[in-house]
Nucleic acid binder design. Structure first.
Lengths: 189, 189
DNA sequence: TACAATTTTCAGAAATTTCTGAAAGTTAAG
DNA sequence: CTTAACTTTCAGAAATTTCTGAAAATTGTA
């Protein structure tokens, strides 16, 4: 499989950015390739196009499956495994978002929850405990918010993201017409 | 400077998570330490508490300053540089959010914009071009949205994040009462 | 069952990132 | 200007991550 200059640039860039997005260079490249390529590709094609070893491809595919970013297909009369990006660009973005939330937030929330169980022994620890509580509250809220966003359908998500400065107005509106049973802000120190 | 067990656990965890958040282990630890510690700390204290070399501390401090996450202070009668986390937990979270947007989104937007300038030469390239356009539109919108969120003050941000399923209702409300001059969705393919 | 096609595994090699510590640089004070 | 206190730099060492390729495992077919 030969890549056009454009595809090449796209793939290489996603390789470079890969590490910032949570996977390594070759995994980023594989994912980028499958994203712009419509046809299902097999492991040999990936190895050839990206000039990496067959073993590396195998590991990369495993990782992308763990991220739920690619799907396995079979071509009739061919025993090879073929893969495509799992869904539309929107689907993929959503999946990356959810997986990153899981990997970047959940472990920290778990640890902080645990740290908050022990009583501070002295002044020093008490100050630290307070800070930990603040970090926890913020991350917990962020996590919930991310969860809320994940559940919005494409239409609503689009609407929300396009609001721009309209978001301010809408939030104002909300506080004025606040009869709709939403709880007031309670957990502020 | 001696760390309590709790502080120790917090610091070590942020070291581990560091790489997922965009900095390396020791930078993560240094940041965590300054976040739970109220008093300004100097480089020697950091090196001692984290058991890392003085040179490493110097590099880490430089990086944290590049992220705008720490602030330099001076103690009267002491020539050493002292540092504290730059602002409240909220301020810090906001800064991390903004810096990550800059590092994770901007370079990609720049590249994609450039790729979209060249005309596709054949069918294959045309398909790829379309995908690139889709990725671009989505990331561009995400970037704008992140920008909008960054500009909200703490009160509004809190309000928004606490909405939960109320967000749906608010968005519905919006489409019904849509006389307020918001533009309709236009840039969809 | 046997076999060929294909995928996975994993030990060690290669590449990359991080860290150290000594030397060089900077700065304030006398 | 000189010195001492402090910070930064950076070459090489250490640690970590990624990659290769040959061997092992799996799978479909006959």
């Amino acid at each position: 499989m030969k890549l056009s200059n454009q595809a090449q640039a796209f793939v290489l860039h996603f390789g470079e950015m890969g590490s910032r997005w949570g996977f390594n260079r070759t995994v980023g490249q594989m994912f980028a390739l499958m994203t712009i390529h419509n046809e299902p590709v097999n492991a040999d094609q990936l190895a050839e196009a990206l000039k990496i070893s067959r073993g590396n491809v195998s590991m990369g595919l495993k990782e992308l499956q763990a991220w739920r970013l690619i799907e396995l297909h079979h071509q009739p009369g061919d025993r090879k495994d073929y893969f495509t990006a799992a869904g539309s660009i929107w689907d993929l973005a959503r999946t990356v978002f959810e997986e990153r939330r899981k990997r970047e937030l959940d472990p920290t929330l778990t640890l902080l929850r645990q740290l908050l169980l022990t009583e501070p022994r002295d002044e020093q620890e008490s100050v630290a405990q307070e800070k930990i509580q603040e970090v926890y509250s913020l991350l917990e809220m962020l996590d919930q918010f991310a969860n809320t966003l994940s559940k919005l359908d494409e239409k609503d998500l689009l609407k929300l993201m396009k609001l721009g400065s309209g978001l301010n107005k809408l939030l104002d509106l909300k506080s004025k017409a606040s009869g709709s049973g939403a709880k007031k802000n309670s957990t502020r120190k």
